[in-house]
Structure formats: structure tokens, C-alpha cells
Design a protein around this nucleic acid. Structure first.
Lengths: 339, 339
DNA sequence: TTGTATGCGTTATCAC
DNA sequence: GTGATAACGCATACAA
């Protein structure tokens, strides 16, 4: 059915149909075809109908590269993440993909493996073929990011750089709720299991914890840096035990889960002997026993907003370049209890 | 530093540097630049050195679209998955991305949301701009897939279609191990919570279960189809309880987890009153209580192999188009016990 | 409203 | 070994 006699005659041998083939079949010039398909309404209705019919018959698909070569626009967005298997980024990927494709954009994805060099290389490789870039939990230096943003639209997730658009969790709110919760339970001495040394988010969370514990007259120590993984949490166990605190706040849920596993192995009861809380509310936090108390960030929404921002900035010219804060929410589960 | 006087003079105003700019700066013709960068060694050493220096100075990046327009090759692979947030696909995505970028290819990702129409649309949209396609747990009809494979290299994950390359888990092995395990525990009556009606993998697992239970004289009933999600497992609970079996094998871990949650809410003890097992060994299966007995598939490896296959087939001409089986492994944990 | 001519950046086919 | 030139498929300025 896809190979009518007319269609085959009009199509060049081998490759896919082009606007030239469509033009020949419809009896018009290639530019008319281009116009008909590009901006409907600019040509006469009967002609457009003929062209559409011909395109359909040849199952014509526009060649995005040829279009991009002329327009300079690829309708493609890049998403660079540190670690694809980190559950934190799953939701970001999905949100970004769905908003991108809803806007008619394709999403390409690259992984930096927590390495600043690898991230820079991935960005350079992708740069010429995308219209905009989403950097999630970037490990790049601020200057590099600013330089990048000068070349193409950039939006950050979980990272703030002056003058660059960013989608950020409203840490203050979540941290305050968490500390109120812990304070109410009687905890006065807390440890923070920090994330990677280069993590902007970790530094941010630490700052807010410091502020909020001071305000409430609670003690706070930092233990880290730690790899933002389950293993990272496991390895921190001995230092946590040595710290003699009654509650631990981990940089993220993965670290919290690893810590709880190590505690379970060592016979430390949670929350009986030690309360544990995390950040992000990833898949799995609800599954463990006891279920993890955590500060939920709206990662999926962050991904969606990031793509939407780029799309609107690419389509309209007049999009703002502000930081956008996403509310965080304290999810109280079984891993926190009385001191 | 990126803006030497010479560099600025040679670069066209505004856009990125082209081979013309490099050629001008190096004092050669554009075609020589193309050759120097494309196939090193075909031109004289000093000339090539000059060209490389000029390219470096202008921070020249080849324009992939322009190259693709002429060569017809984009150095891009597409990965189409049913549901990005399904933990099963996380590993696939990562494996595919790492092997793709290792081979010099970029990975674009699309989600079909378990819909055959959406999948077909995504494939059509991506088709012109990629060199090859990975279809993970595709919901497309076999004929559609074959037609697609005739246009561009295609590789399937968790799906078999005659004449199309595929990476498949060796279900037989895993299912046999699982049933031996259950049989040894005294189970004689089993229920299978099947996946989506269109899932090739679900049908495959069902077939093997049927075969192996027959061989062992065990009873088997199918309950389904079910959505391959935690909710899907929860919703199946009543039918499972009504079935009066002693063990349940779920299509995947997500369904198994959902079922266990429903059982926990209803006071049904696992594995005391009912044993539960799943497939895939996703992140989270080890976290729940009791930890889930499951047949592990090497999803990450599957993604990696899929990309590698496409890359080698695109680079060499003579890659085989066979099905490749990946060993599965029974992981015994706490959710299965004596009948 | 529609057709003609040109350029986007690269590679490949010729000459030299 | 190197340089001119055509071609890839499309979009647009200009002409009609």
C-alpha cells in the first residue's frame, strides 16, 4: 500500500521522499511545498490540499537536518545529568522529556558520571546540535556555565548561578519543617551527612540546616563529604555512631537508606536509638522499613519546568531568565521518632 | 583568551566558526580542512598541524547537521521506552547511553507511555534524524517493527520479531530455577500475575511457567492482565486471595511489590501465608520487607548490548542480525518460604 | 499566490 | 597533496 505506482515514480531511488518529490507529484514548485507544510494558510486551499495529499502518498517526512542547516534551529534539547541510575534523576528525565515532546522538541540525554570534565565534554559535543541545554545538578564551575549560557539558552536544575535561569527546590521551607519536626520529637543534637564536595545543593542544605539549628539552639555537625549513593551512606555509619547524635539528616535518600542498612546490620534500631531523615523522596524511600522521613522535592515538575522554560524562550523571544522556586514538603514516615 | 585578534578576524560575525573560517586562518582551502579533520594522514603533516592549530584557536566544532545532510548519517541513536519512570528501564537507559557515547553516538530518548500509537508516532518523528533505533519492550505490532527494520537498523529489547535483532533475557533458565525453588518449598499451586496484554515478555514468561509447572505436576492459574506498576499489583490482591494458591509469581517486581503492600494492609503474612516472587530485580526489591525473591535480568547489559550492536552494524557493514540471550539469575530473598 | 535563485556547512568528485 | 565545484534538503528574499 505504501508503494503506489505514482508514488514510486515520483520518489527518487533509494532514499526518503523530499519536497522535490512532493512538488513533482503535486505539480508545483518545491518552495510552494515548503510553504504549504511550514505555515498553513499562506497558499491557496486547493493547492495546499494537493500538496498534503502528495506528501501523504509519499509518506513524506521533513528532513530535520536540512531544515536545521538553514534555520539554525534543531528542535532538540539536551539534558545533562550526573548519574542516570540515581533515582533522583528519573523523575527529572521524565518531566523534561514529556514537556519537551509536548513542545515539539526532542530530548537528547547525556551523563557526566559526577565528573566535571566529562560533563564539559558532553556539553561541547552536544552544543552544536541542540537549541538549548538543561543542566541537572551540574558539577561545572559557575564561570563555565555562564559562558555556556552566553552561547545558547541554558537552564539549571538544583544549582544556582548568577544570571542563569534555574529551577530550584525551596530548601528553606522543607528544612524548617524538618527541624521543627525533629525538635518537637526532642532531638537537640543532629548530624548532617553531606553530599559531594562540589554539590551546590549539599552546600545549600547545610547552610539552611545551620541557620535553623542555630535558631532553635540545636547542635549540628557535618559528616562528609559522602558519595550520594547507598554505599556512601553505608560507609558513613561508623562516623555517625561516633558522633553521638540522636538524629541524622542525610544529603539525600540514597545516603539515608545506606546508613539505615548499615545500622540494621549493626543492630542499631531506627528510630529507637537514632532517627534518620533524607531529601528527595525517591522511589524506594516508602518501601524500606522503617519507611523514610524525607523532604520531598518536586523533581518531575522541575524537569518539566526546565523544558518548558527553554521551549518558551526559544519560541517567544521574551521569556524571563529568573530563578524559579519549587515548594518542598516534609513527608513524615517511620524513620524519625522521639529522641 | 578565546578571543584572539586573529581568531576574531577570521570568524564570521555572530555564529560559530566553520571550516571556511579555519581554512582562511590556516591559509588553505575548505576542502583541505575537511580532509584534515575527517581522515588524518591524507594530507601533509605541516599543513595538518596548521589546520589543527587554526581549528583549536577558533574553537571550531564541526556542524553535525551539515555533515548529516551530506552523508546521511547523524551519529545519533534513538531509544524508545514504554515508561521512563519504571525502574526497569533505568538500567536500560544507562547501559544504552554509555555504550552509545562510547561509540561516538548521541542517544535521544522517547517515551511511548505504554501506548502503541504514541510509540509509532515517536518513532516516526525520530526516524529521519537517527541512524538506528532501540525499541525496549515495544508495544508495536510485529509487522510495523519489521517494516521499520527495513528502513533503518533496529534492535529490540525484551521482544522478539522474526528477522529483527533482539536482546532477550533467557527466561527459560530463570523460570526453571524459580519453579524448582518453589517446588522444593512445597508449593504445588501457583498464580501468575500477568503484565499488559500486549507484552511479549509477559506472554513469554507465562509460556515457560506453563511448561515448567506441567513438568513438575504443579497447578498454575493466570490472573491478569495487570498494569505493570505498583498499583497494578495492589489491584490484583483480591483476585489473588480468591485463587487459593500458596505462591504468586508476578510479571515484574513492581506488581509483586504492590501485591505485597496490599497483603500487608490486609494482614496476609508473606511468606507465612503466601509466597511472592517477581522478575527483574529492580532498585527497591531489596529494600522492601520481606525482601523480594526475583529473577534478575541484566537490563543494563541489555541496553549496552543494544547500542553496541547498532554501532557495530553502522560502522562495519557485516554485523549479524541474531537474537542474543542474556542469562537470568534467581535471587532468593525473604518473600518466598515453605508452603 | 506561486516560482526562481541562493545559501546554510559539510563531504565527495573531479581536476590540477 | 591540494583546490575548485557540485550536491545534500530545506527555507527565504526576491521576482513575477
Amino acid at each position: 500500500m505504501a508503494s503506489d505506482a505514482g508514488a514510486d515514480k515520483a520518489r527518487r531511488k533509494g532514499g526518503a521522499a523530499t519536497i522535490y518529490d512532493v512538488a513533482e507529484l503535486a505539480g508545483v514548485s518545491p518552495s510552494t511545498v515548503s510553504r504549504a507544510l511550514g505555515k498553513p494558510g499562506r497558499i491557496s486551499a486547493p493547492t495546499e490540499a494537493r500538496i498534503r495529499a502528495a506528501a501523504e502518498q509519499l509518506s513524506f517526512r521533513i528532513n530535520p537536518m536540512a531544515r536545521a542547516l538553514h534555520t539554525g534551529r534543531t528542535s532538540t534539547l539536551a539534558l545533562v545529568v550526573a548519574d542516570i541510575t540515581n533515582p533522583v534523576v528519573f523523575d527529572i528525565v521524565r518531566g523534561a522529556e514529556s514537556a519537551a515532546s509536548a513542545g515539539g522538541y526532542t530530548l537528547v540525554i547525556a551523563e557526566s558520571q559526577e565528573s566535571s570534565d566529562a560533563e564539559a565534554e558532553a556539553v561541547q559535543r552536544l552544543l552544536p546540535s541542540v537549541d538549548g541545554i538543561i543542566l541537572a545538578t551540574s558539577r561545572l564551575e559557575s564561570d563555565v556555565i555562564r559562558e555556556l549560557a552566553a552561547q545558547k539558552p541554558v537552564v539549571l536544575i538544583n544549582r544556582a548561578v548568577d544570571g542563569v535561569a534555574a529551577i530550584l527546590p525551596d530548601v528553606e521551607e522543607g528544612v524548617a519543617a524538618l527541624l521543627t519536626h525533629l525538635h518537637d520529637l526532642g532531638h537537640r543534637s543532629i548530624a548532617f551527612l553531606s553530599g559531594p564536595a562540589t554539590s551546590w545543593v549539599s552546600a545549600q542544605r547545610w547552610e539552611h540546616l545551620l541557620e535553623e539549628t542555630e535558631r532553635r539552639g540545636m547542635g549540628l555537625v557535618e559528616i562528609g563529604p559522602n558519595a550520594p549513593t547507598i554505599d556512601g551512606g553505608r560507609e558513613a555509619f561508623r562516623r555517625v555512631r561516633a558522633a553521638k547524635v540522636t538524629a541524622v539528616v542525610a544529603f539525600n535518600d540514597l545516603i539515608a537508606i545506606g546508613l539505615m542498612q548499615a545500622m540494621s546490620s549493626a543492630g542499631v534500631r531506627v528510630p529507637g536509638q537514632m532517627s534518620v531523615a533524607g531529601f528527595d523522596d525517591i522511589f524506594g524511600s516508602e518501601l524500606i522499613v522503617p519507611a523514610l522521613t524525607t523532604v520531598r522535592s518536586q523533581l518531575g515538575l522541575a524537569g518539566r519546568r526546565a523544558s518548558s522554560y527553554l521551549v518558551s524562550r526559544l519560541e517567544d523571544q521574551d521569556a524571563t531568565s529568573e530563578e524559579e522556586l519549587l515548594a518542598t514538603e516534609l513527608i513524615v514516615r517511620g524513620s524519625t521518632g522521639p529522641a
